[in-house]
Design a protein around this nucleic acid. Sequence first.
DNA 1: TTTGGTTAGTTGTTTAACTAACTATATGCC
DNA 2: GGCATATAGTTAGTTAAACAACTAACCAAA
Lengths: 146, 146
Amino acid sequence: MPNNQFRKGELYSFITGKASTAIARRLQKKFNAASLNLTIEQWSVLYQLWKQDGISQQELCNATFRDKPSITRLVDNLEKLKLVKRVSSKEDRRMNMIFLTNEARKMQEASMVLAEETLNEALESVPADQVEICKQVLQIVYDNLK
Amino acid sequence: MPNNQFRKGELYSFITGKASTAIARRLQKKFNAASLNLTIEQWSVLYQLWKQDGISQQELCNATFRDKPSITRLVDNLEKLKLVKRVSSKEDRRMNMIFLTNEARKMQEASMVLAEETLNEALESVPADQVEICKQVLQIVYDNLK
DNA sequence: TTTGGTTAGTTGTTTAACTAACTATATGCC
DNA sequence: GGCATATAGTTAGTTAAACAACTAACCAAA
């Protein structure tokens, strides 16, 4: 049974995800305005490290839904900014464990405030139960395509 | 009143839109498998032209939520692929009207079948009313941040 | 008619995504 | 021990996004 409730005209924006783009752009602007010298992509990597420091690049790939070359470059750029450090693992010398610097740790508080602020602005006037349903649908979509 | 029903751990994936990324990646794979030599971004431009041929680059910006440089480059690449043609307007010589070639017109049917197929796969087992709510929430999010 | 502001589009630069091809290390099997 | 295979990460090349600075054309008011 086809589950496609999209009229033709709506197909494009669901596929290309204009809402999440808009959220990312808004957050980026807040970062810039606060002189937080970070891209959203760099922030998404730091975000995982704030949750757990010292994980491997492969674990960052899984956590951020990126492939290995993307993480290599993001870690390159974060290292140039002196926000993370690669430390090769002693147990398995193929692996780099990625560690936050003190400077990166200091950015957590400010950036998380801006991220939550952005979500509040995005979800203004949306009832809580509808946000919950939306989250569930997006999760199922992700799982369906994984 | 804060509307933020996100536990911290979910914040990132809502902001960066892993679901829409997954949809785009799936559709791109279908294009490649079908030897449709198109990126999703190029397809999103053609999609607008299939709806209405001969619109300006500015109208493409609005329709695809992109800025002008992005559309300039996408049209550049589509022109290289001989899928569109720039025709400068006679009424206003600043404007380029973008027209599909015959080759591009031939791609509509096949690519739309793949796009709808992708959406059906993405939304499998999601009840219609929940899809409807999800669409509404994403639209509100977009409008809130516009 | 010219000056100032606006609109349409282009170019340059940086960051990132994706694919494919690659190196180096680890592991498991004979 | 030696070989095949898998895993971790890097490099190269193309496409695209975001931003700033730019050119060209249009338009309106002095």
